[in-house]
Amino acid sequence: MVRLITHNLLSCHVKGCTRNNFPLRFQDVKVELREAEFNAEFLRNFVPRIEWKALVDAGKELGDTSLPEELPEMLGDEFLKKLHHVLLEIHVEEGAMVCPNCGHVYKIMSGIPNMLLTESEI
């Protein structure tokens, strides 16, 4: 499955596509929600590695508007629980991710994103 924690780390890597190639936009998605174990320390440690705006926007694309536009200074439990849900419990099972720059379509099938390129695209 593509969770938003993974989506936040993926960019378009078509040859020559190096600007405005992140975040990939979701298209025609089928989403499932699955509970995951809450781990506040993991989340606090992971926050510095997140591109915040990309995460907030991706959440909205999948219909979740619970995250604030700006990352709060204090990472309290209430905030972390929202973050936990958006980052780890929303699973994109089918659909695609599209590069905002070159338009390349990366399909998601049975929960697995296909980021492979053909030889001419590398």
Partner: peptide
């Protein structure tokens, strides 16, 4: 929970 991605090496992740 493992997060599998079809990718050559780490290509799709390198930039981030």
């Amino acid at each position: 929970t493992l997060d599998p991605v079809l990718s050559s090496l780490s290509d799709a992740f390198n930039q981030r």
